[in-house]
């Protein structure tokens, strides 16, 4: 259980309040108007944006001030998820060992993750020579080996075509189901919500609302959400 208690996130004159809990093994969609603070919320969970007030609690431990790498989560950003100068194998290997001292077991694990995302024969390529979809798969392979309890996606597939994006989302869904991780995913598309999410966190007017079951919320949206959905 991951809890944001009475949290306030401020950046310049923007501020976002959140008081919510995220449960293991569930899949959350974060939706809301552009600029409402969806990415900021993920940044705060991940440790890139400090909390002005409040606490972040994980399984009873206060991790408000923990370094990003020391938190039980992994995140894919909108871009720059891979180091262009490292091979796919190295990029994924970083998820296991940040000093890159991979043991034979580690290498085997990376290789199996790469096979899992159908990149087995691309291990020695650099990201620059991969297609957009292949780059996304490589990043997902890393998420897989990291095996953190929470996986945060800040629209990493926004640049992909609809079919490819759906393929990636399905892959993500399979991966989190396999690892038992919770998924927190920013999206603009109500169809993504329907496709994946168990619950929805709606962010608008400076508030990140507590999660509500996806189906009920989307079928019967409150006025603010209805306005956003159009």
């Amino acid at each position: 259980m991951l809890k944001l208690e009475q949290a306030v996130i401020t950046q310049d004159d923007f501020s976002l309040r959140a008081d919510l809990s995220i449960e293991p093994h569930k899949k959350y969609a974060v939706i809301g108007p552009s600029g409402a603070g969806k990415s900021t919320l993920l940044g705060a969970l991940c440790g890139f944006v400090p909390l002005a007030h409040g606490r972040l609690i994980w399984d009873g431990r206060d991790i408000t001030d923990a370094a990003p790498g020391a938190r039980p989560m992994t995140m894919l950003f909108q871009d720059n998820n891979l180091f262009p100068h490292l091979s796919v194998m190295q990029n994924v290997g970083l998820g296991l060992r940040s000093d890159m001292r991979l043991t034979a077991d580690d290498r085997a694990e990376v290789e199996s993750a790469l096979s899992r995302v159908s990149l087995a024969d691309m291990a020695d390529r650099k990201p620059g020579s991969l297609s957009g979809g292949q780059q996304s798969r490589a990043a997902l392979a890393r998420v897989l080996v990291q095996a953190r309890p929470f996986v945060l996606l800040d629209e990493p597939f926004a640049a992909l075509g609809p079919a490819l994006r759906n393929e990636m989302l399905d892959l993500v869904q399979q991966l989190v189901t396999e690892t038992g991780a919770a998924l927190i995913m920013v999206t603009h598309d109500p169809k993504d919500v329907a496709r994946i999410a168990d619950e929805v966190i709606f962010v608008a007017n400076g508030i990140a609302h507590a999660p509500e079951p996806a189906k009920e919320l989307m079928d019967n949206p409150p006025p603010e959400l209805r306005e956003y959905l159009g």
Binding site: C46, G47, F48, A67, P68, G69, A70, T74, M75, F77, N80, N81, F83, H85, L86, Q90, L94, G95, S98, D99, M100
Partner: peptide, 24 residues
């Protein structure tokens, strides 16, 4: 550009130099 990603991967200190800064 890569600071956030590095931190998310706990690539700090020497590993950051070794795998990110020095090669770049």
């Amino acid at each position: 550009v890569y600071g956030r990603l590095s931190q998310a991967l706990s690539l700090t200190g020497w590993p950051f130099w070794r795998w990110v800064a020095l090669p770049r």
